[in-house]
Amino acid sequence: MSPGLLEGLLMLPALLLLALVFLWPLGAMAWLSGQASSVLTGLTALPNGGANWLRLLGDGRFWQDAGQTLRFALVSVVLELLLGLGLALLLQRPGRGRAWLRTLTLLPWALPTTVMALGWRWIYNDPFGPLNALLGLLGIGPYGFLSNPATSWLFTVLADVWKTTPFVALLLLAGLQSIPLELRESLELEGAGRWQRLRHLTLPLLLPYLSLALLFRLTQALGVFDLVQVLTGGGPAGSTESLALYAYLNAMRFLDFGYSATVVMGTFVLLLLAVSLALLLWRRSQPHRRPA
């Protein structure tokens, strides 16, 4: 048996498993998106010649949700990367109680999203929530954090940042600890300041970890569901509805499985585009940041 064949054979179970959990559902979704399968057809699938896809292209709500989901993902991921980096740098510094601090920082990440979303719904409560109590001390408010279509999405972002920044910080902290101390010391000996060390040593060596965090967070944020469902239910006036929420509504509330599958497939295509674009941009920017 040639080594290549053996390799292939040994990889076969893993590939089969991947096909089972990834390709098979994807194929089933793609097939379903070409069918009328709803409460009106008695849940039987009847081919409808791409009518679902035509409907998707002209569905203002799908495109509005796509824009809202992208806005949510971009803003929250950028904030999380910046804050996560700062937090990781802080946690990296030697000092008393560092272990405690690290544990505490991780707490938001450890909470189930629905539980923390319920907590934030209470924090944002108008007029009894603690945030409005703080505003009251300053003599302003109360403010309807979740009842204003123009600004409510910002507060869903804030809750998401609170929850997932620790995850980014943890990833980056692992990256920071992989940077050899000698490199830093030699740079210090050459007279590099704190900012120069960060720019020419830490950031370039942290890049693989930053891109990993970006990839993880971007895919998760683009699929946001539970946070929005609990916090606003997609409101006010649909201004926080995400694509995942729309797909869920179509399947579980409207019992329109054909169209829900189309929404999922449409989201999949958009997600693929967004993530490849992000990776492409990231790769392009990498060589320039390497220290000469």
Partner: peptide, 16 residues
């Protein structure tokens, strides 16, 4: 679906 449509419009009316 009908309920969802109405909720969106009325919620938009009273919030925005």
């Amino acid at each position: 679906q009908l309920s969802d449509l109405l909720q969106r419009q009325v919620n938009g009316l009273i919030s925005g």
